[in-house]
Amino acid sequence: MTLQALLGIEHAVVQAPMAGSQASALAIAVSNAGGLGSLPCATLGPDALRTELQALAAGTGKPYNVNFFCHTEPAPDPAREQAWRQALAPYFAECGIDPAGIAAGPGRAPFSAAIADIVEPFRPPVVSFHFGLPAPDLLARVKAWGATVMSSATTVEEARWLEAHGADVIIAQGLEAGGHRGMFLSGDLDGQSGTFALLPQVVAAVRVPVIAAGGIADARTVAAARALGSAGVQAGTAFLLTPEATTGAVHRAALRSPETAHTAVTNLFSGRPARGIVNRIMRELGPISPAAPAFPLATAAIAPLRARAEARGSGDFTSLWCGQNAAGCRERPAAEIVDELARAWAASGI
Rank of each mutant, 00 (worst) to 15 (best):
L6P: 02
L7Y: 03
M18Q: 04
G20Q: 01
L26E: 00
V30T: 03
S31A: 07
G34E: 05
G34R: 04
S38A: 15
L39W: 02
A42L: 14
A42I: 09
G45M: 06
T51R: 12
E52M: 05
P63H: 08
V66H: 01
H71C: 10
A75E: 14
R80S: 10
R80V: 12
R85S: 06
Q86F: 06
F92K: 05
A116L: 15
V119H: 04
P121F: 04
G132Q: 08
P134K: 00
A140E: 15
R141N: 09
S151I: 12
A164Y: 11
G187N: 13
Q192S: 04
A197P: 02
L198S: 09
V203L: 00
V208C: 09
A213T: 11
A217V: 01
V222G: 07
V222T: 10
A225S: 01
G229K: 01
G232I: 01
L240Y: 07
G248I: 08
H251T: 10
A253C: 09
R256I: 08
A261M: 08
N267V: 02
F269Q: 06
A274Y: 02
G276H: 08
R283P: 05
A298R: 06
E310W: 05
E310V: 13
F317D: 06
G323W: 04
A326S: 14
C329R: 07
D339P: 02
